[in-house]
Nucleic acid binder design. Structure first.
Lengths: 234, 234, 234, 234
DNA sequence: CATGAATGAGGTTTCATTCAT
DNA sequence: TATGAATGAAACCTCATTCAT
C-alpha cells in the first residue's frame, strides 16, 4: 500500500512555485537566516501575522530590513518557511515513529505526543500554527496542505496497520480516526494557548488511551440502557 | 454542581464592551440588517476577513457603505456579530439537546451533528468560523471565548451525567473528552472546507460512535500484544 | 464725513450670496430657531467648529437633525449667523455709544468695554469669535469683514472726532489707533479664554486709559536718557 | 524677580510629548526635511490646514507621500514644527533685543518690528500663524502657549525694566501692556493679511511710538474737558 | 413643519518592498 | 552581501446633507 512509504517526493520546498521570484540564495549566512526565522516566529507568535512588522522582525534579528529580503521572498514566505521547516522536523521524527516496531496504539500515542509536545514547547511557534496558519486561505492551500497531508498519511498508515494486524477494530474508519487524532490534539493545543497556562499540555498519551478504549462504560449492566435510535427527531 | 445547569446568564451581547461606542440602534430595519449580515458572511467567507472590503459587503447587501455603520460599529463588529448570532442559534438548539431525556451517548451524537451540520450547511459561514475567527487573538479573546465556553459546558454537562449514570466510563476525564468531541468535529469541518467538497460532511454520528466505542479491537487475542514503554528510543 | 454715519446699507444678511440656495424661511418657529442657534454656540464653543457635529447641535436643541436645515442653509451658515446676529447686537449698542454726547476718550472706553464685556460674558461665544471665526478664510472673507468693518468704522469715527475736537493728538493715525484698540481688546479676550479663568476680563477701561496716556513716564528727568535711533544695527 | 532672566530652560522641543510616538529620526536628509517644511507652510498658508492635503505638500516638496512621515509624525506635527521652529528663530532674535543696552522704548519698538516684520515677510507663514494656529484648541494648548509665553515674558521683562529705570510710567501694568503690544501687532498682521496688500506692513515702529506717547492731546487746553465717569450707564 | 434613516465622497497613514549606495 | 531611506498603493470610517414619509 502506498501509505507504507511516507511521501518522499523531493518537494524540496513546497512553496517554490513556478512563475514566482526564486527565493534568494539561502547560502549566504545560515546563522543570520536562522536568526531571522527565530525572530519571525517570536513576532508572528506574539503580535500575530498581520500585526507583525518586517521592521520589527529585522530589528529582533539584528539585521536591516532589506536583509530579510535577501533570505526570504516576502513576509508570507517567512511564514511559509516557518511552517515548512517546523513540519520537516516533525515529519522526520514522525517517520521514525511510524517505522518503529511497536503496536499501532503505541505509535499513535507517540505521534500525538510528538504533535502536542513539539508545539507545546514553544508558545510562539504554537501560536503561529494554531492561529496564524489558518488565517490565509492562500497559505493553507499552498503549502500547509502537502506537509500536513504527509502527517495525516502517517497516522493513516499506522491506523491501517493496526486494523490489518487486528490491534484495532476491524470497522474503524482510518480517515475518520485521523481526523479525531489530529483534531483532538489540535484542540488541546488551542485550549492550552488560550488558557495562558505556561506549562506545556501533557495530555498526549491520555488522549490516545481515551480514544483507544472509548467513552462507553464496559460491563454487564452499563451499556444500552435505552438508546432509541429512531422516532425521536430533533 | 454548577454544570448541571447550563450557563444561562443573560450575557446580552458578549461583544458589548464598556467604554466602546454603543452599537448603533439596531431597531432601524431588521430586514436590511439581515441583508448586511448575510453579505458579510458571504464576503468574509469567500475573500477572508482581511481581503473583504466594506464596499463589497455594502454592494452585496444593496446598501450604501455608510449604512453598514448604522447597523454595526465597524468591520470587526460585523465579524463579531456573525459569530455571536450564529452561536446563539447553536446554543439555543444545544440547550434543547442537553435537556432532552436521552442517553448521554445520544445527546453527544446530536450535539456533534448540530456542530457539524450547522456549519456544514453553509460553506461561507463555516469558513468564517474555521478560518477567520481564529485569526485575531483580540477577537478570539473578546467574544469567541464566552460563547464557546458555554458550548463546552454543555458537552461537559452531558459527559458528567453520562458518567454519573453509569453510561460512560467512570474514569473518563470530561475535560479531555470535551476537547476530543469538539476538536474532532472541528477538524472534520476544516477538512471538508479544504476539500472543496460541496456536500456537507455527514460523519457526525459515526464520529461519536467511534469515540464511544474506542479504536481498540475487542476480543480474546487482539489487545496488549506488547506495549514496551521504554528501551525504544525515538 | 462719511464716517459720521455708520454704514447702514440694508445688507440684510451678509451671508446671502447670489447663486446660493436661499436660506429657508426663517419664520417657522422663532423659538426653535433660537434654540438651535444657542446650541450651535455652545457646541462650536466647547468642541470647536470642526469637531462640532450637527447631530450634537440638533440633540442639544431638542430637534431632529433635518430640522436644523429648515432654519439654516448648512453648518457654515450656522456659524455665520452666530457671528452675524452677535455683531448686530454689538453694532446696535456701538451706534448708541458713538452717537453719545461724550468725549472721544469716554466713548472709546465704552466701545472697548462693549467689545470685551460682550464676549467676556459668554465663554462659548467668545471661543467662537476668538478661535473658530479665524479658521476659515472663506468665512472671514465672506461675512466677518463687512460687519467688522462697520465696527472698525465706528472706532475710526470716534477717533477722528477726537482729533478734530482737539481731544486727541493731532498726529494720531486713526487707522493705526483702530488696530491698537481692537487688537488689544481682542488679545485680552484671547488671553482670558486660554487662561481658563471664569470671571470675565475686566480690563476694558484700564486698557483705554493706558492707551490714552501712553506708556512713557512724564516728568522732568525720566525721559530720553539715551535713545540712539541710528548707528545701532540689529 | 524671575523676569529679570528670560526663560532659558532647554525646552528641547515643546511638541515632544511623552507617550507619543517619537518623531522619526531627523537626521536623514536635512535638505529634504526643509523642503517638506517649506511646502507645508506654502500649502497650509494658501489652502488652510484643513484643506491642505498631504499629497499636495509631498508633491510640492518633490517627495512621495510616505516620505513626509519619515520626517514628521503626522499632519498636525507638521503644523507644530512650523510654529516651533519659526518661534525659535523669533525668540533667538528676541533674546538679543531684550539684552541689548538700549532704552526700553527702543527695545519694545524692535520687538514689535521683529514680530510684524518676521511674519510680514511671508504671507503664507503669516497666514499659518494668524489663522491656522488659532484654530485647534488642542494645538494652541499644546505648544503654541509655551513658546508664546516666552515671547510674552520678554516683553514683560523689558516693560518692567523700563518702569524700574523710570523710562516708563510708574503705574503701567506690564501685563496689560504686553497684551497691548502683542495684540496690536497681531491685529496689524491680520489686517495686512486680509487686505491682500503685497508689501509687508511697516507700522511697527509707529505703532510703538503711538503706544508710548498715548492718544491724548497734550497741551494747556486739550485734556479733560469733561469726562463723566459715573451716572451715565450704557 | 418635522423627522431621522440613508447616502457616499474623501483623505491620512501605514508598511511591505525596492534599490542606490 | 548589507543597508535603510524612499516609495506609493490602498481602504476604513465619518458626518454633512438629503428626502421619503
Amino acid at each position: 500500500m502506498a501509505h507504507s512509504r511516507p511521501a518522499r517526493e523531493p518537494l524540496a520546498s513546497v512553496t517554490e512555485q513556478p512563475g514566482e521570484a526564486p527565493r534568494p540564495v539561502p547560502g549566504a549566512d545560515p546563522e543570520k537566516r536562522k536568526r531571522i526565522l527565530a525572530a519571525a516566529v517570536k513576532t508572528f507568535g506574539s503580535r500575530g501575522y498581520h500585526e507583525a512588522r518586517i521592521a520589527e522582525i529585522a530589528a529582533q534579528a539584528g539585521v536591516a530590513e532589506g536583509t530579510v529580503y535577501l533570505y526570504f521572498r516576502n513576509k508570507e514566505d517567512l511564514l511559509g518557511v516557518v511552517f515548512d521547516e517546523t513540519m520537516d522536523e516533525v515529519l522526520a521524527e514522525g517517520r521514525r515513529i511510524v517505522r518503529a516496531d511497536l503496536p499501532a496504539a503505541e505509535r499513535l500515542a507517540r505521534m500525538v505526543e510528538l504533535h502536542v509536545g513539539f508545539l507545546g514547547a514553544d508558545r510562539d511557534l504554537a501560536s503561529v500554527f494554531q492561529i496564524e496558519l489558518r488565517r490565509s486561505a492562500r497559505l493553507v492551500e499552498r503549502f500547509s496542505r502537502s506537509k500536513l497531508v504527509e502527517y495525516f498519511r502517517m497516522l493513516d498508515h499506522v491506523l491501517r496497520q493496526g486494523v490489518e494486524r487486528g490491534e484495532l477494530r476491524r470497522d474503524l474508519d482510518p480517515r475518520l480516526a485521523v481526523r479525531i487524532l489530529f483534531g483532538a490534539a489540535d484542540e488541546i493545543l488551542s485550549e492550552w494557548l488560550l488558557s495562558g497556562e505556561s506549562r506545556p499540555p501533557s495530555d498526549g498519551r491520555r488522549l490516545v488511551e481515551t480514544l483507544l478504549h472509548g467513552f462507553i462504560a464496559r460491563g454487564p449492566a452499563a451499556t444500552r440502557r435505552k438508546a432509541p435510535r429512531k422516532g425521536d427527531s430533533r
